[in-house]
């Protein structure tokens, strides 16, 4: 009992804020940072941060913002959307709880993603009050995502586990999106693309939340980082780079998510409003799930 208690305390203590009167950036730590800087054996995080932030972040995001819409346009005009009639029979798939949860995350993303893009291209917008407002909105919208990401992870986790049989075949035919043919596509309740998006947004989202809290609080110390020998300023540098790079990936995937649900599969987003999917759409795009429902006698 005592041992368990001690272990728990030890675990918790790593998450405690260092109760220091001294600042962990401008205080005594500043000395070791200056002595270490540019020396052999140091992490060189300041230098890496400067180079990566100043030369790669903006072009990376610009690339995503140009190439992905171009790919969508090409797909839309060459292959064209998949259209399933929404007037026929449909299957109830998403419960009200899941829909509300999805709506919370969706609202937060609608704010977080544009404001994040504006901040990265802050020089284009000239900085000042407008970009400062976006920075505020970016922070204010994030709690919505924080409260929806955990239930989302828990309610969909089981359905999102990779099933090699369907998913590898799905990858081989790129989800059937290269042709307009309505042939049953190997996928369970969620296809491989949805699974990749899900894991990226939930696990990546948790990393985004952790780094955002670090960047928001700035001057503090966490036992877990000090025990790893990381100074607070290096923690901030690593967090900023991680936040920006994962953020760009999430922007890319979010754009794909929107394109798929609104254009590629016409009006598929409606399933997240009323919870239902046309039976034909399930039969074609989620054939394994349809079989499962048939076996249960639900369709």
């Amino acid at each position: 009992m005592k041992k368990r208690y001690l272990a728990l305390m030890l675990l918790l203590s790593t998450f405690l804020f260092g109760a220091k009167a001294d600042s962990s950036i401008w205080g005594n730590n500043l000395l070791s940072n200056i002595l270490e800087y540019d020396k052999e054996g140091s992490l060189h995080m300041g230098h890496y941060f400067t180079v990566i932030q100043s030369t790669y972040i903006q072009p990376m995001l610009l690339f995503v913002l140009i190439v992905i819409p171009l790919a969508f346009a090409a797909h839309y005009f060459i292959v064209g959307p998949k259209v399933f009639s929404h007037s026929g029979k449909s299957i109830m798939v998403f419960s009200l709880f899941k829909r509300i949860n999805h709506a919370l995350a969706a609202i937060s993303f609608m704010v977080i993603i544009p404001t994040g893009i504006i901040m990265i291209f802050g020089d284009f917008f000239g900085g000042g009050a407008f970009v400062r407002f976006c920075k505020g909105a970016h922070a204010i919208a994030s709690p919505l995502f924080m409260i929806s990401v955990i239930p989302m992870l828990l309610t969909w986790m089981k359905r999102m586990i990779f099933s090699p049989k369907d998913d590898i075949r799905w990858l081989k035919i790129v989800g059937g999106y290269l042709s307009k043919e309505k042939k049953p596509i190997p996928a369970g309740m969620f296809n491989m693309g949805q699974k990749i998006y899900f894991w990226f947004v939930t696990l990546g989202g948790l990393v985004m939340i952790a780094t955002s809290v670090i960047l928001y609080l700035v001057d503090f110390e966490l036992g877990i980082f000090t025990s790893m020998g990381l100074s607070q300023i290096d923690v901030l540098r690593i967090s900023a780079l991680t936040h920006n790079i994962i953020g760009i990936f999430i922007v890319a995937m979010f754009m794909v998510h929107i394109y798929m649900s609104v254009f590629a599969i016409k009006d598929a987003y409606k399933s997240m409003i009323d919870g239902t999917i046309p039976e034909e759409e399930v039969k074609i795009l989620h054939s394994s799930y349809y079989k499962e429902l048939q076996e249960k006698g639900e369709v």
């Binding site: 950036i25 401008w26 500043l30 940072n33 200056i34 800087y37 540019d38 300041g46 941060f49 400067t50 932030q53 960047l215 700035v218 300023i233 901030l236 540098r237 900023a240």
Partner: peptide
């Protein structure tokens, strides 16, 4: 605070 992260001198 990106300038702070880039600055070696705080």
């Amino acid at each position: 605070a990106y300038c702070l992260y880039a600055c070696p001198f705080g």
